[in-house]
Amino acid sequence: MVLTEKELFERDAKRDIGEELLASIREVKAGRYGSVHKVQLTEAAEARGKTGLSQPKFAELLGVSVRTLQEWEQGRRTPSGAARSLLHIAALRPDVFRDVLMA
């Protein structure tokens, strides 16, 4: 059933949103709320996350556009060649990646 704007306002005026939020948080902490969804990170997203770099800085170090990096991170495109090797190094040794490429 679709409510009119007036009906929505009247319904929401009776609600205690703060208490509803606290109750939801308590349910989540108690493990009683919904199912858990796990998101599989792409190699690019995982590698960048380990380095702690922003998308623009990470893309610059890889020699690609931010848009290309975003496509890799979202799984719409797959890196190849040197970029794949650099991502692998960044994932395994983020300290070396930062030290070598940011020097």
Rank of each mutant, 00 (worst) to 15 (best):
M1R: 10
L3I: 05
T4Y: 01
K6C: 00
K6V: 03
L8Q: 12
E10D: 14
E10W: 01
R11L: 14
A13V: 08
A13D: 11
K14T: 08
R15Q: 10
G18N: 09
G18T: 13
G18P: 05
E19P: 02
E19S: 13
E20H: 00
E20K: 01
E20P: 02
L21A: 10
L22V: 11
A23I: 06
S24P: 00
I25W: 09
I25L: 14
R26K: 14
E27A: 15
E27F: 05
E27Y: 08
E27H: 10
V28D: 05
A30N: 15
A30L: 15
A30T: 13
A30P: 13
G31P: 07
R32T: 13
G34S: 11
V36T: 08
V36Y: 01
V36R: 04
H37S: 08
V39I: 15
V39P: 07
Q40P: 00
L41K: 05
L41S: 04
L41W: 01
E43H: 01
E43R: 01
A45N: 00
R48V: 05
G49F: 07
G49R: 06
K50D: 04
K50W: 08
K50T: 04
T51N: 11
L53T: 07
L53H: 08
S54R: 04
S54L: 06
S54A: 09
Q55C: 07
Q55W: 02
P56Q: 07
P56D: 07
K57H: 00
F58T: 10
F58R: 11
E60V: 00
E60Y: 03
E60L: 02
L61C: 03
L61K: 04
L62Y: 03
L62I: 04
L62W: 03
L62E: 04
G63T: 10
V64L: 10
V64H: 09
V64N: 10
S65L: 02
S65F: 00
V66W: 01
V66E: 14
R67G: 15
T68I: 14
L69A: 13
L69H: 12
Q70M: 03
Q70E: 14
E71A: 13
E71D: 12
E71M: 10
E71F: 07
E73K: 06
Q74N: 13
G75T: 02
T78E: 14
T78C: 03
G81Q: 06
A82C: 04
A83T: 15
R84V: 04
R84T: 09
R84L: 15
R84C: 03
S85L: 11
S85K: 09
L86Q: 10
L87S: 13
H88E: 14
H88Q: 11
I89L: 15
A90W: 06
A90N: 06
A90C: 02
A91D: 08
L92F: 01
R93N: 11
R93I: 03
D95Y: 03
D95L: 05
D95H: 06
V96Q: 12
F97N: 09
F97D: 10
R98F: 00
R98W: 00
D99F: 13
D99K: 15
D99H: 12
V100A: 08
M102K: 06
A103E: 11
